[in-house]
Write a protein that binds this DNA or RNA. Structure first.
Lengths: 208, 208
DNA sequence: CACAATAATGACACTAAGTGCCATTACCTG
DNA sequence: CAGGTAATGGCACTTAGTGTCATTATTGTG
């Protein structure tokens, strides 16, 4: 990103912030505490983040980027279902990433009690939307600024958000942890149904 | 709402805040200025709103509630297209409401330059989502907490948001003001395409 | 390697957002 | 009119967030 800021500096802070938020609530956590827990000065914290709540955004962003990285490799001649099925797991060998996922799931599960977390969560959904717009535009050979593409990206991102919220709540509050295959299946179904453009099916590069 | 707070006190503040935000930007407007412009004390302002940005929420909310009021009267045996066509305008005789709409359109058109306004805007979308969940649930005789209903409400609300953003930007930045009929048509189409459940078509109360 | 340029950080003072507390005022009820 | 409750205002206070500048780390260059 920038020239010399250590890669991962922001997400390290995000992890500290997330743990504090989960432990003591957003209102019960001060910026100073986050800075101290992350081992940076107060001043640097506010250079990294525009607000206390936004400190957790890098965690949400990582999930998006993760998905993005996968979707980059989605072959044009494959359905979403098949693609997600094949890609199920694979990359999730990193222990850090599993830990991050847990934090994210707990944060999402707490959205109702912690409305302050809604802002970063919605910002993340917005980022996912942009991401999906690129994916859709690429598959259908359209511009990512095209109205139809924006519309489709918005509905799909919204569907993904609902899936995330549903699964996270079920996991944290009712202990219903689905298998990765189940989650992916549910996600694929929701994406397909939410889509307003046919990007979920195989597409043919040149042909009309 | 509450026992003695004057009805419309909040939205009056919202109007003052919106005008100031549009004139001098969010960052360039202080809470004190908003309070002064609205003729209330600083202290009361912070009792009304949790943050500076959220001051404009009642304006967004009014648009949602407006739509909600209409949708309450959506007959079960009518399509969205027809319903919106029939309801096009009608209620918009109130001068105040036209003024409010203008403010909202300008606020939405400025979302890119004023990311601080994204939070209240997303909150409003969330409210619309809840609203649509009720409409969908009623039409399909389901619970508004049902996963399928939530999913559909989310995609539809997202579509409505994109329409609002598109139309507002086009109007403010390129002077392309569509007729009410055009807007409604576009809205109906987007809703229908975004929907994951068949609530846009006539539904039969008891049957099946 | 040394040195200059530039980017990142920290320290500290400062502004402004937002809260706690309590006295005062408006409103509703009997 | 009296008395209870809800809303407001004033003021002190906390904390989120910024401006400024000196210091330190990093990178590129001869």
């Amino acid at each position: 990103m920038s020239r010399t800021i250590r890669d991962g500096a922001h997400i390290d802070v995000a992890r500290s912030a997330a743990r504090l938020f989960l432990e003591k609530g957003v209102a019960g956590t001060s910026g100073d505490e986050i800075a101290e827990a992350a081992g940076i000065s107060k001043r640097t914290l506010w250079r990294y983040f525009r607000s206390k709540e936004s400190c957790v955004e890098p965690l949400f962003a990582r999930m998006s980027q993760n998905l993005a990285a996968k979707l980059q490799k989605w072959p044009l001649d494959m359905t979403v279902e098949r693609f997600l099925e094949i890609n199920y797991d694979m990359s999730k060998i990193d222990a850090q990433e599993i830990e991050d996922s847990k934090l994210v799931v707990h944060l999402i599960a707490r959205l109702e009690e912690e409305p302050a977390l809604l802002e970063p969560w919605f910002m993340s959904t917005r980022a996912t939307e942009d991401l999906m717009a690129d994916v859709i535009a690429t598959r259908l050979e359209l511009s990512h600024t095209d109205f139809e593409v924006r519309l489709c990206a918005a509905t799909v991102a919204a569907a993904m958000r609902v899936i995330d919220e549903t699964i996270s709540r079920a996991a944290v509050k009712y202990g219903q942890v689905p298998t990765v295959a189940e989650s992916n299946d549910r996600l694929a179904q929701a994406i397909r149904r939410a889509a307003t453009l046919p990007f979920c099916d195989p597409v043919t590069p040149r042909g009309r």
